[in-house]
Design a binder for these strands. Structure first.
Lengths: 348, 348
DNA sequence: TTGTATGCGTTATCAA
DNA sequence: TTGATAACGCATACAA
């Protein structure tokens, strides 16, 4: 049997028209047979003929054409600060899992911590007519930048796009917000309960909202316990591993009397521990450490790091559910669980 | 001034036709003005009128429509086994960086180590008419699975798609292949040079080609040095952190006389070190360890881990260059550099 | 340089 | 249940 509608063998893909011709049915019927989405309104034998023809011609539906005709895509946009950071890549795993279950392809945008690129990527995803956009990562206290983001997201949503984020709910979109303040306070109380009294905080960037929430939650709880953290025991630095390392170097330079260091995220804590070791400290004997997030890597460091555990994969799933409207809340608060490990054995 | 062609305010996006009407030019002129790609064949004042109109109407070009009309997309497909694994997420960072530079959006597919899903994602990316597909991750020695993959990729390439991969060049696409064998051999010689004589290998899955290359390169080099690794000192296990952990448990159960353990990747080595510690060993005194990849996390473990350093970000860039045809080689070999750290201080 | 008209591959509306 | 046919939004060959 010779294929009537086969396109030339040199790279031209078979279209639905070719399939229809090959199967001896109309374009409409072929479309219905292959899609069958709403109502199965095509006779079984015809459907089979179409499916066979499609198989023979190695037909691949053109998603762009479908997007045009249907008026919507099956694309989900995911914007992260740094995909190589375990915090983001773990959440991304949750997002891809949920997106997959929903039949959506994930378009990944890596901003490299550049807020302006976030806006640019929203534009790109708007152009792609992504069905939803998910934004991961704490916001900065920067009104101008936030306003631009807000506008971009508003414009996107006005055109029918859905959006959700992980972070502070200040951009006019649904959000999964980690209870940074409460969990950090709980961590502070736990450490205080262990007997620690002299604290330092590697507090991240001044204007980084997540860093601020963790810093403040921690310090306020200690203040309430009558054990305030001295101002010069709070060191600002970037929210990344090297930031933690460098902040620890600065802390040691100040030669304060400190028992335990809280870094506002795990990668910073790990960098800080390394800095402490480089300075000759013996951990956890000479200095206790705690972090936040509970990234996988913590399982294999020594001493194992006390931290606040958040379920990043699940946060990824949840923010996807929000974005896809499978969950109608506007704000989901993710709680953190204090996990005490070897790095905080209690004061010697 | 009232906008002539403005669509209703309720979510309907402005199209190029609206922009053209608003600017008082034809659709074609508007298209040329906004695109200006090939030849700048539109009068400056008109161009400005169009751009202003687009701005006013908050015009967002429909990438799907452009894809239809142009016959190509600006999408790059990226398929990884597990985006939350630092090896993959770091390479992904390189890919997104390069894709960004090339003006391409990255569609991320996370297979969760399921080979069948790789084939499925290739189909999806084919449907999306992705301009190129990048496949990251070592292959299995599984002819049936590889054949299905090969077919899927061949079909994709016949239709004009480009493809490249990181891993063994056995799928008929361009590849960046790490010199696992050579680098592992070099590592073996370095360790031997330190004086180690009693080796064990946490060798990953039997049929995992990358694992096999590293395992064999390591063992063969030692054999050549007259210091063969005993068969029962090579433990098979999954290529992930827990695999390394469990393999180490098994190794210790066998109670062999071992000085140094080579795990075929870093996350396995980290899991193995934790297992050794759980068993009460003091590292590196009681046991030396070495891994492969040099993931970022190694900087902050104790003892710091000896390994083979590969530049994963650059590998991501390179495989993207291959996929986009910016590099016309079929095969790029990425070399690894032996890095000796505290975990291999030499026999006591 | 500008405009007209056609086609890209689907879906969906409307008749039959 | 099936088949014509009109969108969908844009790029471009061709004509002016």
């Amino acid at each position: 049997m010779t294929s009537t509608g086969t396109p030339g063998g040199t790279g031209r893909a078979a279209t639905l028209s070719h399939v229809a011709r090959e199967a001896g049915v109309s374009l409409a019927t072929a479309s219905r047979a292959i899609n069958g989405s709403t109502n199965r309104s095509v006779r079984e034998d015809l459907r089979q003929r179409v499916l066979d023809a499609a198989e023979r011609l190695n037909y691949s539906p053109n998603a762009n054409a479908q997007a045009m005709a249907r008026g919507r895509t099956a694309t989900l946009g995911l914007i992260v600060h740094d995909i190589s950071d375990p915090f983001f890549s773990t959440i991304a795993a949750g997002v891809t899992e949920a997106a997959d279950a929903a039949g959506l392809a994930v378009t990944l945008a890596n901003t490299q911590h550049d807020a302006e690129r976030e806006v640019g990527f929203i534009q790109t995803l708007q152009n792609l007519r992504a069905r939803a956009i998910i934004l991961i990562g704490g916001r900065q206290d920067d009104d101008a930048a936030n306003e631009r983001l807000r506008e971009a997201l508003a414009s996107y949503q006005e055109r029918g796009g859905a959006a959700a984020m992980v972070g502070q709910p200040i951009l006019g979109v649904k959000a999964v917000h980690v209870d940074n303040r409460g969990a950090s306070a709980a961590l502070a109380r736990s450490l205080h309960g262990l007997g620690y009294r002299r604290f330092a905080v590697l507090g991240g960037p001044e204007r980084h909202l997540t860093a601020a929430e963790r810093r403040e939650g921690f310090c306020e709880a200690l203040a309430e316990l009558g054990c305030p953290v001295a101002d010069d025991a709070v060191i600002a630095s970037p929210f990344v591993r090297d930031g933690g390392h460098d902040a620890m170097v600065e802390l040691m330079r100040r030669a304060l009397d400190v028992e335990v260091v809280f870094a506002v995220n795990d990668v910073m804590a790990l960098g800080a521990m390394t800095a402490a070791r480089e300075a000759g400290l013996d951990l956890p004997r000479d200095m206790a450490f705690a972090g936040f997030d509970d990234i996988y890597a913590l399982r294999d460091v020594t001493p194992t790091l006390s931290t606040v555990r958040i379920d990043m994969v699940d946060i990824g799933r949840q923010v996807t559910a929000l974005a896809l409207g499978e969950e109608d809340r506007e704000l989901v608060t993710a709680s953190g669980e204090v996990v005490l490990r070897e790095s905080t054995p209690g004061p010697q």
